[in-house]
């Protein structure tokens, strides 16, 4: 159970950062921390005691494997996470070139 708890606390830390920080880079970092905790949770619920990695050896088939479905879902999600983080970074770099700051309060004041 303690592994689940730590995973949830990691998610809450990311959420706290996303709500309270005013810096765009910090918000992007917080979002990716939340993403990581979700991946970790998927891998945790797929784990089975005494299981081996889900690769079949034809000469020596084993009975217990770790659940491959959460791993397959996370596998694609990690690459998508990279693409979305890069897109966030593209938005941030454009905002910095236009306004010269990462602070979202100043950006709000400069609008007009």
């Amino acid at each position: 159970m303690i592994a689940y708890w730590m995973c949830f606390i990691l998610f809450l830390v990311g959420l706290y950062g996303a709500i309270t920080r005013r810096n765009l880079i910090k918000i992007a970092i917080s979002l990716s921390i939340m993403e990581f905790s979700t991946f970790l949770f998927f891998a945790l619920i797929g784990y089975i005691d005494g299981g081996v990695a889900p690769i079949v050896d034809p000469a020596d088939p084993v009975k217990i494997y770790v659940d491959p479905l959460p791993q397959a879902l996370v596998l694609t999600a990690i690459v998508i996470g990279l693409a979305t983080t890069a897109m966030l970074m593209a938005v941030i770099i454009r905002i910095y070139r236009k306004y010269g700051t990462f602070d979202i309060r100043e950006i709000k004041n400069l609008r007009g």
Partner: peptide, 13 residues
């Protein structure tokens, strides 16, 4: 895809 993203960022800079 990833190479395109990286090149786009470098070209922008």
């Amino acid at each position: 895809s990833i190479l395109t993203i990286f090149l786009a960022l470098v070209i922008f800079k």
